[in-house]
Amino acid sequence: MTITANKRHREAKEPHWIEWATGMVSALVVVAMIAWVGYKAWTDADMEPEFTITITERRPVEGGYRVAFDIVNKATVTAAAVAVRGEIVDGDNMVEDADVTFDYVPAQSQSSGAILFSQDPGAREVRVRAVGYTDP
């Protein structure tokens, strides 16, 4: 409890037990947080961003064809300006490509986006892959 008299704050001498209980719980949580971050600092090896892309949806939209995907960064470092390119491939010939850029793909996290093609790939193969990134 704090007493404010004449604009001066003074802490009470005999605090309520609940103040100590709150203090202890807070101390535990803060220590746990520090331990968690410390553990991460100790164990995290220097890694390069590592992307896995899975196509989640393919459907025609007005004026084109939409291929939605999830991009997962498994590494413990974040990648910025991640460029993802989608290609429609017919045998050895590339029929169409389209790019999309993610501002960030955070470490061990997932982002989602979509590529819009102008034509329906039909039975042709659709490739989606990350082509580059920068360190944030």
């Binding site: 605090p15 103040e19 100590w20 203090g23 807070s26 803060v30």
Partner: peptide, 10 residues
């Protein structure tokens, strides 16, 4: 520190 600062940080 225990009664005010740490709970405050939390």
């Amino acid at each position: 520190f225990f009664r005010f600062t740490l709970p405050g940080y939390l």
